[in-house]
């Protein structure tokens, strides 16, 4: 009997490989970026088939959304074609083959794919699946682990995003408020259809972001995904109607402060739990009932993540696009 999932796996993996090779061989960076978006989408599909819905959601938002967007806004500044220069091709090939072979050797002693008794699935993970319902009482185990059992990693993750924001700001600067000078050239907002669609779409996206933010406990989603979606709405707005109107809504200095605040909110939960007699990020002490303490903690820290992620994404996008607006159109072939 041919397993349906098995066929899907093979097909998706084959597509991934074709896409990857195509990316490696092509020289048109615009096409490559598009393909890399497809690569992200395909891997998201693959994640779904591997039952990793949260990851799929995130990978779709990042791999097929944010990262191609960032690439494109940079391409606008740097030019579309690479000159195709290669360096140490032989050396690289040898290195890659050796590394690959080492990895293949490494897999030989690994537990079989999908083995329910593999160590990975039978040690630490068991507790999460069996006890989180009682200890934390939210259906999405990924959220339980992410926000509570390994909440400190997620704090680190929020800090990483924050670090990237600060790093990009230190490199590209913060555009404070609308600049002097006229409105940039023709915008897509002039197209009636686009405008109408987007005017309906953007509120919907924002609403969806809120849903994802507060529904992470039950289904896939959470602060990060919500933040990305929220940012997407603002970014869409700025793409259609220009940077200045968007920046009037989301003012860069405010965004910067929000990015910092999100991290602070997250950290404060840890501090409060320390002050309440627990360890850092021990939500159980936040309320009389440990389980509702967990709920409270998770909601607040997800909020912190969402705020940091959304403001960081918007900030980073602004930082890139304000540059390309400033550059002359001719430079972006």
């Amino acid at each position: 009997m041919i397993d349906f999932a098995f066929v899907v796996d093979i097909v998706v993996l084959a597509l991934l490989l074709v896409t990857a090779v195509a990316i490696a061989r092509m020289k048109d960076l615009f096409a490559i970026v598009m393909l890399s978006g497809i690569y992200g989408l395909l891997s998201a599909a693959f994640f779904v088939s591997l039952d990793a819905v949260d990851v799929a959601f995130t990978e779709a938002a990042v791999g097929a959304g944010i990262s191609p967007l960032l690439f494109l806004s940079v391409l606008k500044l740097t030019g579309r074609y690479e000159n195709g220069s290669h360096s140490h091709a032989i050396f690289a090939l040898v290195l890659v083959v050796v590394t690959g072979l080492a990895l293949v050797v490494g897999t030989l002693d690994m537990p079989a794919f999908g083995d329910p008794d593999s160590p990975a699935s039978s040690h630490v993970a068991v507790r999460y699946l069996e006890e989180s319902g009682r200890e934390i009482d939210i259906p999405n185990v990924v959220t339980s682990v992410l926000a509570s059992y390994r909440g400190y990693d997620t704090f680190g993750e929020a800090v990483v995003i924050f670090t990237a924001a600060v790093g990009v700001l230190s490199l590209l600067g913060l555009l404070s408020g609308p600049r002097e000078g006229g409105e940039s050239p023709v915008r897509m907002g002039d197209h009636l259809v686009l405008r109408l669609v987007s005017e309906m779409l953007i509120p919907l996206i924002l609403l969806f972001a809120l849903y994802v933010q507060f529904h992470g406990e039950y289904g896939p989603g959470g602060g990060f995904q919500a933040g990305v979606i929220f940012a997407a709405a603002i970014i869409l707005h700025s793409m259609l109607f220009g940077l200045q109107p968007a920046q009037r809504v989301a003012r860069p200095p405010v965004l910067r402060a929000l990015a910092a605040l999100g991290v602070l909110v997250y950290g404060s939960v840890g501090v409060v739990s320390m002050l309440s007699g627990g360890t850092f990020l021990d939500y159980s002490v936040l309320s009389e009932d440990p389980v509702s303490g967990q709920h409270l903690g998770i909601i607040v820290i997800e909020l912190g993540v969402g705020v940091t992620v959304a403001s960081t994404m918007i900030l980073i996008f602004f930082a890139f696009t304000s540059r390309s607006d400033a550059a002359h159109p001719e430079t972006s072939r």
Partner: peptide
Amino acid sequence: YSLTGTLNMQDIAARLPLVDADRTVHTA
């Protein structure tokens, strides 16, 4: 992780010698 199912260093150190998967451990 795929061999030991854990990420805690102490726990790994305790479980790794029990794992019979030399090639994977060495690659790791």
